[in-house]
Each structure stands twice: as C-alpha cells, then as structure tokens.
Design a protein around this nucleic acid. Sequence first.
DNA 1: CACTTTATGAAATAAATTTACATAAATACT
DNA 2: AGTATTTATGTAAATTTATTTCATAAAGTG
Lengths: 282, 282
Amino acid sequence: MNILEKITNEFDSFSKSERKVAEVILASPATVIHASIASLAKQANISEPTVNRFCRRLDTKGYPDFKLHLAQSLANGTPYVNRHVDENDTAEEYTTKIFESTLANLEMARKSLDATLINKAVDVLTQARKISFFGLGASAIVAHDAQNKFFRFNVPVVYFDDILMQRMSSINSSQGDVVVVISHTGRTKPLVEVANIARENDATVIGITDAGSPLAKECNIVLSPTVAEDTDLYMPMASRIAQLALIDILATGFTLRRGSKFRDNLKKVKDSLRSSRFERKE
Amino acid sequence: MNILEKITNEFDSFSKSERKVAEVILASPATVIHASIASLAKQANISEPTVNRFCRRLDTKGYPDFKLHLAQSLANGTPYVNRHVDENDTAEEYTTKIFESTLANLEMARKSLDATLINKAVDVLTQARKISFFGLGASAIVAHDAQNKFFRFNVPVVYFDDILMQRMSSINSSQGDVVVVISHTGRTKPLVEVANIARENDATVIGITDAGSPLAKECNIVLSPTVAEDTDLYMPMASRIAQLALIDILATGFTLRRGSKFRDNLKKVKDSLRSSRFERKE
DNA sequence: CACTTTATGAAATAAATTTACATAAATACT
DNA sequence: AGTATTTATGTAAATTTATTTCATAAAGTG
C-alpha cells in the first residue's frame, strides 16, 4: 500500500506527537521528501527521534527509507486498473481506458508467469528438431506471430490456424518435435485433441493457456499468462497481447541461449529486407 | 524526464567511471535505492565522490536526492524504456525486462496517439462499405487480428498478407471502401504502392504507420503509435503490440458508435463458439 | 494516589554524504 | 614525441544527517 494512504489510515492510532508529524507530511509531502529529519522535526515541533520512530512505525527502515517510500507514493500516483468502457465515452476516454486496461493486464500477466517454467520451455525449444505453433481464432494470430519470430532463427518452424492441418501435422510429429498450443481458455475441444495427438506421438507439448484447463492437462509444460479479460465487448483483447509478450520472451530466451554469434544471423535476416524499403533521408 | 531514461540517453556522454556507476544502476535500480553511496561506489569499483559527481551531473542535488528521483522512476506507472536484455540474463531477468519495455512502449504509444484522428478513423470505418486490412511481416499479424475483430461486426472485411492479393484487392476498390495499411516503418515499397493504388481508386486509406513516412503520405488518415523499438534483437516487438492496442481502440470505437443493440450481436458471435468448448465445471 | 507503562526529548554516537585538495589520466598544442 | 592544459578521479578530512542511549515526563491502571 501507498505510504500516504497508510498514514491517513493509521492516523487515529498515532500518538500526539506522531500526529503532528503526520499532519506536516500530509500537508505537503512533496516538500518533505527534500527535507532533513531535523527540519521536519522542527516544522512539526517535535524531536528528531520522534520522527525516526514515526518512520519505523510505518515499517520503513528509518527516515531516509521513509522518504523513498514517500517519493514513490508521489510519483505518478495512479496504478493501472482495469477500466471499463462506457457507452458515452469520447474517443479520448475510451482510448485511455483501453491503454490502461492493457497495461494493467500486462502487469498482471507478468506477475503470473513463472520464470522457471519459461526457462524450461526455452530449453525445450532450443533443442527442438521442429517447432509447430497452433492456435485458433485470436490465438491464431499469436501462433502466426511466433512463426514470424522463430523462422528467423533458422529452425524448422510451422504455423497452422486450420484445425485439419494442425491434426495432420500432429499425427506426423515424433520425438524431438515441439508443439506449442495456444488458447486463452484452454477449452477449445479440437485444440485439446491436437495436443493429445501430438503427445501420443512423443512430441513435447508446450501450452500457452489457462493453468487448470483441459488443454493444460495435455501439455508437458504450461505457461499461463493470467489476465482479467475484459468481457464487456466479447472480444479477446488483453489475453492475446499478454500471449504475444510471452512469445517475445521465449524468442529472446532462445536467442540468448544460442549466443552472440547466432545473433549476427538475425541481423542478416533483417538486413535482407533493406532493398525492399525506401531509404530514410536523414 | 524519468531519470532512468536520462541515464540511458546520456550514457554515451559519460566518462569511464560514470559509465561504471550507470551500469550498476541500470542493472538493478531497485537495489540501488536502498544502497548507501559507499556501497554503490564499491559495487561500481569507483570512489564515493565520483558517485556524487555523477548524481549532480544528472541535475540532482546529491546522492540522496538522486535516490529520490530514482525511486520515483521506479514507482508504479513509470516503467522505463530501453532495458536491454543482456547476454547473461536469467529467465527471470529477461522476462522482467521485456515486460517493462513493453509497458513503457505502450505508455509511449498512448501519449503519441491523437484522439481526434482516432475519432475520424472510427467515423470512416463505421461508414465503410467494405474494410480491408493489409500488412506484411509482423504487421500482417496485426491485420490478421483486425480481421478477426471486425468480421464480428458483420461488415464485409478482408485481410491479406500476400502482396499480390493486396494489389488486386486495391485495384478493385472504389468509393466507400476503406483500406487500412499497417507498417511500422512505413517504408515498405510494395505496401506504399498498394496504398497509392487504393487511393487512386477512391478508397479511403487509413495508415497505421510512422507519421512522416512515404506510406503516411499516401494515406487519408494516419494513426501513428510511436514506440522506441528495441533493435537489439532485430525483431519487431513493441511496435506490433502498440498496433494491436490501436486495433482494440478502433474496434471499441466502432462498437460504441453502433450502439448497444449492435453489441448483442457480438454476444451472439461469441456464444456461437460455445458448443465447441469444454464446459467449465465450477 | 502510587505504580507501571508508554511517549518524548537532549545529548552522544554512529553513519553517511560532501568538500577540499592532490594526483592521475586524457587531450591539445607545439 | 614532449610539454601544457584541461579534465577526471581518488584520498582524507569536514560536515551534515540520522540513530541510539538514556533520562525524564506524560498517560494509563489498579
């Protein structure tokens, strides 16, 4: 919790002198962060140790640490929240709301991801003989994006958004192949079947999906970026953005694992596009 | 400006010792705000006065004041750009870095977008007879996603990631049609041509691209979500996520403009998927 | 109203930061 | 190349700032 809120909340439980400090701080926190303990004590008409004790009471290590917390409370204030779009919102308003929701959800997704599992997934991917990315609907886009990234690594990579192709591809998979199945809910029957087929054919299955879902049960490794999907508009929004961030992370882990020499290759791929572009004038 | 960004920006103008401090700070700013000047100096293998001078160089009053600024940079809501992944990062570290960059870039994109133009674009889209989304490479994914969203609105919508199909489609366009061209750089020759063809055939062209680019010049409306693309790994990352957020915004604007009755339709589309899913047990 | 607990402040101590100065490194100019 | 000059860095002392200790005062309790 924000330390300013904390001061307000606990105000009633403070002693007489502590209240004096609290009042001075609440009156102009921005001034306090630049004041020494001596000057704050003087402003509040109490002694320096009292200020120090006040800081500790608020679970900080001492006065300087307290100022740090105060500074953070003052910075930008508003944490990201999921804000719902309203019927009468202006373009300005819904633009802000959507960005804020997206940010809030990314923050949430970040917290929900387990670095150990990511590391394991990267392990598996770097050793793969062939990588397949499968998704349907909005998740197809994520699979599509993953292909666009991983093909640069010069590993055999395929992507299908057609359930039949996915099935056929899975049936042909075997040990050493990695199949990445992407589904926000993890409840899309055909995709669960595809995962099952892949696994029965000894492929390693990585799921980017909800941890407790039927799809998750078919996976060797489950990565689940959790978001509070905005269901107001019945469209996948935050989920796919979090999934894309995860793809970035996996791709980054992959390149890091392969070392710097490997990254020169990436530059080549990028440079190969140059001739199809208009040059910058600057 | 955020002091962390400032350190990153001015890094090249630092002296040898200053760079050492900067590196330590950038590597783990959260640790630094709890460190004394002595411990930071030791970590960076330089003397305490050098740290102090470093702080002043960044327009702070001294080390404690510098820490205050740093704390504010780190506070909620101010993620920072350009946290470059490092060769030796752990999964935990690069995961954090990528999320932070993504958040910072979304924040940046949000600031760069003009609500008036968004409103205009929504206007045009709601009145369109047919909407086409065109992109190549990483932007193809964004176009793909846009189709996935807009087809729910029951308007004729197409998406192509094939340059020939894009050309043919553009040649056949006419007044009342809207073509949305997506390209981060706006310098991909074939796509610029496509935009030109569309415009010559009286379609309205909306560009999701860099404002000053050749592609932007061919557009009737230009929406340019600006991001500081991380070029370390030669892969499009933040740009496409910002573009997707913009698609969400346009789609949201579209549904709001169409009114609540229209949104019942969206629910129907979503419900139509139900039979293909495993039910939740809860 | 005595007694205990809790709160507060003065002074001493400890810690951290800054200044002043000396030396070393880098750069520019013969 | 060699010297002069500027710029960068470190050592040690001085200063500022924060914390601890301990004594005293206020508040609460039976």
